[in-house]
């Protein structure tokens, strides 16, 4: 009897470990399993009111084929993670002409987290795919708007992966490979 109980306890323990390993410890199966050091839900708790920093945000160039860097004042965030959230919140906020954003209107920041290795994960709402114009060019511009917004402003972030509704996605609209983090690419900036 004791033996059966200990076997049963053993099985339960092993099952727990397997489940923990599958769903908690290694949520990303084949791409650089790195433990998130922090995760913060959006929207952000407000930074000390009034304090601003300058950041370079990216918008679609006049001819539509590249991004243009625009220096803008955005809210200050304490530490790289908070600052990253402020940058992305400002980057995806609606803009008025002459600025045009490559991020589809209505896209919201669900969460943003970072690994110790400098990978940032931006979790966006479904509008980023559902409201996308499609086409290789605009999809590339959307991706590098977000990738460059973090990597060009925050040296602590070296690459960025986009998630949609909390999940990894293959692409936004059928072109750019989003299965792995992407590095800064200023070739797409005028």
């Amino acid at each position: 009897m004791d033996r059966r109980v200990s076997v049963a306890i053993g099985i339960v323990f092993v099952a727990f470990v397997v489940v923990w390993l599958m769903f908690v410890s290694t949520p990303r199966w084949f791409s650089r399993p790195q433990k998130p050091v922090a995760a913060a839900p959006a929207p952000a708790p407000p930074a000390p009111p009034g304090r601003k920093i300058k950041a370079r945000l990216f918008y679609v160039s006049e001819d539509g084929t590249r991004l243009t860097g625009v220096e803008r004042e955005i809210a200050y965030g304490e530490g790289p993670l908070e600052q990253a959230r402020e940058i992305i919140s400002a980057q995806i906020a609606p803009v008025t002409e002459p600025l045009v954003s490559a991020v589809p209107p209505g896209t919201k920041l669900r969460a943003l987290f970072m690994t110790e290795g400098g990978d940032a994960y931006i979790d966006l709402s479904r509008e980023v795919t559902a409201a996308h114009t499609g086409g290789t060019l605009d999809e590339t511009l959307t991706v590098y708007t977000l990738v460059n917004a973090l990597t060009a402003n925050l040296p602590a972030i070296t690459s960025v992966q986009l998630l949609v509704e909390g999940k990894e996605v293959d692409t936004l609209s059928g072109h750019v490979d989003l299965r792995r983090p992407l590095s800064k690419n200023l070739a797409w900036v005028q």
Partner: peptide, 15 residues
């Protein structure tokens, strides 16, 4: 083979 799109309506031409 694909067809492109841009939020800038004037964008044109093959790539």
């Amino acid at each position: 083979l694909h067809a492109n799109a841009s939020v800038r309506r004037s964008a044109a031409g093959a790539t």
